[in-house]
Computed example of a mutant assay.
Amino acid sequence: MLFEQLGLIEPILKALKKEGYTTPTPIQEQSIPVVLKGKDILGLAQTGTGKTAAFAIPMLQLLHQELRNSKGYKHTRGLILTPTRELAIQISESFEAYGRYTGITHEVIYGGVSQHTQTLALRNGTDILIATPGRLLDLMNQGYVHLDHLQMFVLDEADRMLDMGFIHDVKRVIRELPKQKQTLLFSATMPPAIAELAGSLLQQPVRVEVTPVSSTVEKIDQYVYFIEKNQKLTLLVHLLTEKNIKRTLVFTRTKHGADRIAKDLKKAGIGADAIHGNKSQSARQNALTNFKRGKLKVLVATDIAARGIDVDALEHVINFDLPDVPETYVHRIGRTGRAGADGSAFSFCDGREEMSNLRGINKLIGLKIPAVEHPFESKGKEVATPNTSTSGFKRRARA
């Protein structure tokens, strides 16, 4: 199916063509016609499946069809609530791309920066507002944001909202919204608290589900290196310098660890930076922008950034530390192998401390991640070094 077959208006089709998009992803193909009919949606889909366009495109079209005089104050008619600043900015970029010919305006607000620029931008109103929960509540309480005329509401990454402790803020926002509106809720998983929220928020929703958490990894080549903790950095530098890895995300368990790895990589002559919650918003955005533009070879991230980073054509993800929660592994490696592209995920496993983590991951994804040899075996014997292409890996079974 092509976008032209989804009943989209010419301004949006023109924008999609400019972006080079012709074929919708499964979540887009299933969601867009439903949203255009005015129905609520319960969408089970992870970041990387194309879900931003699945709600952005029909929202732009529906609001465009009721476009008011562009002069003067604009009431906010669409609201997207998302958990992280990075994701809010990326959603804003999507609305900019898809809505460039529609005349629909949008603004993005998030915490961690001064609110002055954001309140100035809201002075004349906006058709669509993209926001994180805390900053939205602040500006609502101060009278800068009014949602009385809201027609469409998107709750994105609902389970991430729960994980990050934002669910109470989300409920406070929901209480201020008009009862009559179209609501789209997207979540990668459906824990009881989110299922309960969906039940109270959605009206006869259409359920759209793609790529369950345990199957999203099937298109990604996965490998594990059994390596002692004190040798992980040496192996990382080796992979980045000797292999055909142009750009990669490296995930670590702690903020301190992310900073340390980025610093050590810089000392080794490898362009790297870290992104995590303790960084200022400007520092995080600069690092992400430089990474997207290819100025950095490595971006070292903590788990809080795992589902907020959207980088096109990312071929590799490296788990410097294995996560404690198996689902987190899936979210991490989901940064690669997107939209049908090839992707590879390499994980470093310290056999003394992380074997239980690895067993949990294997159980969740329903396969045993193959181990590959490396030049830093604990016995001190050098072995053949694997290439980064799938065919170059030497697999071996591990108990």
Rank of each mutant, 00 (worst) to 15 (best):
V300Y: 00
T119G: 01
L197H: 05
L162E: 05
G334E: 11
Y110L: 14
I309H: 07
T22V: 10
G343Q: 11
K219Y: 14
A384L: 14
V145D: 14
G257C: 13
Q65N: 05
G334K: 12
L197R: 10
E196Y: 03
I245T: 01
T22S: 15
L60D: 07
H75G: 12
I318V: 06
K255N: 02
I304P: 00
S94I: 00
F346S: 07
G43H: 05
K232G: 06
A53G: 15
K297Q: 09
Q281P: 07
I57A: 12
K171I: 04
N244F: 06
H64W: 10
S187C: 13
Q118D: 11
I80C: 14
L177C: 15
A287C: 02
I220D: 14
M59I: 04
F55A: 05
D138Y: 00
A258F: 07
A345F: 06
H316R: 10
Y144T: 00
D310G: 07
T22N: 12
V237G: 13
F320T: 05
T23I: 09
Q231E: 15
V145Y: 13
I318G: 15
G337R: 03
R247E: 00
G257Y: 08
I275M: 10
E86T: 03
A97H: 11
T52I: 06
K263R: 11
K18H: 10
T390D: 13
L137F: 11
Q151Y: 11
K368Y: 02
S378L: 11
R398A: 02
K243P: 00
V213E: 15
G143A: 00
D303T: 00
L201V: 11
T105K: 15
L239Y: 05
F186Y: 13
G271D: 01
A15E: 09
K243Y: 00
T76C: 14
S347P: 04
G277L: 01
F376T: 13
R247I: 00
L177Q: 12
P83N: 13
E228Q: 09
E242C: 01
R253D: 00
S187I: 03
G103Y: 01
A56I: 03
Q182I: 07
P178R: 13
R207V: 00
K39Q: 03
A345N: 03
D127K: 15
T52V: 02
K71E: 04
D127C: 08
V217H: 09
I365C: 04
F291S: 02
Q222D: 03
L87V: 00
P212Q: 15
E209T: 12
L8M: 02
Y223N: 01
Q142W: 04
R359S: 09
I369N: 02
P386K: 07
T49I: 12
L162C: 12
H374C: 04
V311Q: 02
L155K: 14
H316Q: 09
L296W: 01
M140K: 09
R335P: 03
I12S: 11
V224H: 10
G308D: 06
T336Y: 09
L240C: 06
I365N: 08
I227N: 10
I9L: 09
T132F: 02
S94P: 02
